[in-house]
């Protein structure tokens, strides 16, 4: 679905007069291959290159070196630009920056309208996407009167209405309260499991990635670790070095193990944790 081949992206830094000061390599030789229907999470500290990488997936940025393919199309091939943007949708951090309509349903219809979808079908798509994210009862509301989590779900509906094969979430929950976070993550998981849409989730919240099929950890522009959530979160100390953490339950299990309880590495959920402790007790 998504493939990068020796992807490199460099920013040119300039001083006030516009002279070149230096070059920053934001993405450094990244090779990824994401299969259709996968749920991928990308972790990494601030400035590790996650967002820059993500912007290559729908041709918002072009590689300095190497190539990016979306569903077999090279992102540098201009003739595919609109196909790529339609197939790989993006949801950003701040819901207020992505909503343009005065009414929820108009906002959701904006994408398909720009693609030249016939009017009747636009309304069908709007209804279906709002239903998917559980926002249908708000279709006539003004986005200004929604909570952060609801606005973010409207943004997601706007992307779904374009019938993408892949959605890239760039820290979609950073500005939300716990409930809003849950709503958005639930919507992302449902899209993956029910609609079989490929999901790329970039986040700083370790709890949100435990359901991913694979996790990529980025550092200094390259992929530092790859694996299932369990494999990744087994390496508590390594993650700390990369300025990251693990879910609180995982950390608690890790600490208890260090204190002498025979617990396995990479305990991800509360249920698992309680089960493991029960085993020890017996």
């Amino acid at each position: 679905m998504l493939r990068t081949d020796k992807l490199v992206f460099e920013y040119i830094r300039r001083d006030e007069e516009g002279n070149v000061e230096g070059i920053t390599r934001a993405v450094d030789n990244v090779n990824l291959d994401v299969k259709p229907g996968e749920f991928i999470a990308i972790l990494g500290h601030n400035g590790s290159g996650k967002s820059t990488l993500a912007k290559h997936f729908n041709a918002l940025l072009y590689p300095t070196e190497g190539e990016v393919f979306v569903d077999g199309m090279n992102t540098e091939d201009d003739s595919h630009l609109w196909d790529i943007r339609q197939e790989a949708g993006m949801v950003f951090q701040n819901p207020d920056n992505q909503i343009i309509g005065q009414v929820v349903e108009e906002d959701v219809g904006f994408g398909p309208e720009n693609m030249g979808v016939p009017t009747q079908e636009i309304w069908e798509r709007v209804e279906e996407s709002l239903k998917t994210v559980g926002m249908l009862q708000f279709r006539k509301s003004s986005p200004n009167h929604l909570s952060g989590g609801q606005k973010q779900r409207v943004s997601i509906a706007g992307v779904i209405a374009m019938h993408p094969k892949c959605i890239i979430f760039d820290e979609p929950t950073a500005m939300l309260d716990p409930n809003g976070r849950k709503e958005v993550i639930r919507a992302a998981r449902a899209l993956n499991q029910v609609e079989n849409i490929t999901i790329i989730l970039i986040t700083h919240y370790m709890e949100e990635v435990i359901y991913a099929d694979r996790v990529f950890v980025m550092d200094k522009g390259h992929v530092e670790m790859t694996g299932t959530p369990r494999e990744i979160f087994s390496q508590v100390d390594r993650l700390k070095e990369l300025r990251l953490g693990v879910p609180q339950v995982t950390l608690l299990a890790h600490e208890l193990k260090k204190a002498g309880l025979p617990l396995p590495d990479g305990v991800l959920t509360r249920e698992e944790f309680v089960e493991e402790l029960k085993k020890i007790k017996r």
């Binding site: 609180q248 608690l252 600490e255 309680v274």
Partner: peptide
């Protein structure tokens, strides 16, 4: 809202019959 994750963990451990205090809020 919610409580910290560890509070839930302790709650569940308590229900599973472990003799733990449930109003714990830090790791």
């Amino acid at each position: 809202l919610a409580a910290p994750q560890v509070t839930y963990v302790m709650q569940e451990l308590h229900e599973a019959g472990f003799p733990v205090d449930t109003d714990v809020t830090t790791l």
